[in-house]
Amino acid sequence: MSEQIQQIKVTIDDQTIMVDPGTSILSAARQIGGNVVPPAMCFYSSLKGSGGKCRTCLVEVSAGSEKDPRPMPKLVASCSTNVMDGMIVKNKTSDRVIDARKGVVELLLINHPLDCPVCDQAGECSLQDLAFEHGASHSRYEFERREFDQIDIGEYIKLHMTRCILCYRCVYIANQLTDNREHGVLKRGDASEIGTFIENSLDNDFIGNVIDVCPVGALTDKTFRFRSRVWYTKPMDASCSCGKCSGNAVVWMIGDEIARVTARKDKYGEVKEFICNDCRFNKKELSDWKIEGPRQIDRHSVISANHYEKAAPIHTPLLNKA
């Protein structure tokens, strides 16, 4: 980090940190870590333009800055609001935030099928985690839920719009990996659909990454061979020499067979190194990979947490990163 940058001070839930100017509140919260980090369903650090849509990351700014300490009247999206020097932010310590977030979760769920038992994403679904942590115990929604047919987009990927929360992440990733299309949502309001242009961009070597950025079970891997619950599979860090991508991936094992391959995600569910379709869909033999060791899954998911706690003894202290 260069010394010339004058760092600025921000306080989130009574914890103070110095960050670079231009840092978002969310990113500052992640630098503090732990409980002060708001949930983020649409923002994705590496995707330009993402964020601002799901509204789960809303926080209260109780002082705008040192210079202008007035509070901001509305809650703001922490993923797309930059910190100012001396800003004071409330996340978990704000009743307004907790109430609004509960509202957002309820609204995100009204049209969601809530059929986690038959969804492939169960156990690694951000919406499931979010609902568990921030939601109410029952829904007041008594109308028919929105439904769409499942669509095969190419031979590898299944799109089930019914589960989509319209975070636009797949749209941004498809836009940013292919250069011939601007937008991928058709219709508007609660009739919006992810457009089929994604299908057209399927020839792209990296399109499989839409599966990893999708926070819910709307985009899933059709080659996930065992159709197993994730918590019955064992994730291992693995690498291969690949000409297209870094070849750093996670292979999810059942016994000594590879059930599926994904990119490596950090503790906020974000992929730092996208992998190519070859690695994801076609390298399903143990001989394709060099296994590095068990992957520490840092997820807060109820289901994975239970599972991986039990599995903890297999982790060597070295692999247990802080």
Partner: peptide, 17 residues
């Protein structure tokens, strides 16, 4: 409900409800 662009969840889902 008909005119919401559907970008953000409170408006997209709340207007229909």
């Amino acid at each position: 409900h008909h005119e919401s662009c559907g970008q953000c969840s409170p408006c997209r889902e709340g207007t229909g409800w």
